[in-house]
Computed example of a mutant assay.
Amino acid sequence: VMGDISSAIVSDIPEQTCTGSRIEPEVEVTLDGKTLVRGVDFRVSCTNNIKVGTATATIIGIGDYEGVIRKHFSIKKAPTPIFADVDYSSWYGDAVTFVAEKDLVTGYSDSGLFGVGNALTRAQLATILYRNANPDASPDFRPRNTTGMPDVEGFTWYTAGVNWAVENGVINGYADGEGNRVAFGPDDSMTLEQLVTAIANLSADEEDLPGTGETAAILRPFRDRWSVSPWARPSMAWAAQKGLVAGYDEPDGKHLRPSENISRERAVVILMRAFELGILE
């Protein structure tokens, strides 16, 4: 005679903390005074168990048991990390909190630091934008390299983000003289014009980008406009028009510094501004 697990007693499942990965809590099931064994008497299938909210554990009888019973449990948001190297009263402090609360930047795994003063790398930006576009993706997902670029390592913390960035045309990699994409440069520092171009590739339609004449007019106020790479000029003009970048005030006027390596703190300020302007969602 099969036991019917649908009449079993399932203990309350404690509130869980969101980790970004699927949560599979322990479940205690008792039937007719007997404690059943997971994997022998029942298995558990969980749904809605990644994001903050209410998840469901479905207990399914196996072996000598049949039937199904469901138990709900809550998932709470993980505390926003506090980085020891961040001055939260500074010009970038709010932006660090903003991206940390959205789980876009988690800091360095070996030190727990944000990395103030360090340059943002191309792999890091790809990962940040990938996390925003794929909020349900597990941080443990480490696929093989599908970019076709030999300098991209497979099965690393950044592989999923770089695969996504290349596949979606967000960050295209470096091209040779014939236009073939030959390298991604995952550890290379991200420049301002590269960062802006990646955001434009992700968020702007072709018709949103200004034409040649309009681009020249928009960039005219910047003293160093001629230092913007030709491939980046439409994106930089679009970003200036949107208010995403405003340039630096210097004695002789405004400067964009398009080839400047972007620090991690400046990058998150630009990203926060992109969300506030509705460019990123």
Score class of each variant (00 low, 15 high):
residue 234 P to E: 02
residue 216 A to D: 04
residue 222 F to Q: 00
residue 194 Q to W: 07
residue 182 V to F: 00
residue 204 A to S: 13
residue 178 E to M: 06
residue 235 S to V: 14
residue 184 F to R: 02
residue 218 I to N: 04
residue 206 E to H: 11
residue 218 I to M: 03
residue 204 A to T: 15
residue 201 N to A: 09
residue 233 R to P: 12
residue 249 D to N: 11
residue 192 L to W: 06
residue 219 L to Y: 03
residue 193 E to I: 12
residue 234 P to M: 02
residue 190 M to R: 10
residue 243 G to A: 02
residue 223 R to N: 01
residue 212 T to L: 01
residue 199 I to P: 14
residue 250 E to D: 05
residue 209 L to F: 11
residue 177 G to C: 03
residue 178 E to P: 10
residue 249 D to P: 11
residue 225 R to A: 04
residue 192 L to F: 09
residue 192 L to V: 11
residue 232 A to V: 14
residue 246 A to W: 00
residue 229 S to H: 12
residue 230 P to N: 06
residue 189 S to A: 15
residue 248 Y to Q: 00
residue 190 M to V: 15
residue 224 D to N: 02
residue 219 L to M: 03
residue 220 R to I: 01
residue 234 P to F: 07
residue 182 V to C: 00
residue 244 L to P: 15
residue 250 E to W: 04
residue 234 P to S: 07
residue 233 R to Q: 12
residue 217 A to T: 11
residue 179 G to I: 06
residue 222 F to C: 01
residue 218 I to A: 03
residue 216 A to Y: 03
residue 220 R to M: 01
residue 248 Y to C: 00
residue 233 R to G: 07
residue 198 A to F: 12
residue 225 R to M: 00
residue 179 G to A: 06
residue 191 T to I: 13
residue 228 V to I: 10
residue 231 W to T: 14
residue 246 A to L: 00
residue 198 A to L: 07
residue 202 L to P: 14
residue 203 S to L: 05
residue 250 E to S: 09
residue 239 A to C: 11
residue 218 I to S: 04
residue 191 T to A: 09
residue 196 V to C: 05
residue 224 D to C: 03
residue 191 T to E: 03
residue 182 V to G: 05
residue 247 G to C: 05
residue 226 W to N: 02
residue 237 A to M: 09
residue 196 V to G: 04
residue 202 L to R: 10
residue 185 G to P: 15
residue 223 R to S: 01
residue 240 A to E: 03
residue 223 R to Q: 02
residue 183 A to K: 13
residue 179 G to E: 06
residue 217 A to L: 03
residue 246 A to I: 03
residue 213 G to S: 14
residue 215 T to V: 08
residue 225 R to P: 05
residue 196 V to M: 00
residue 189 S to I: 08
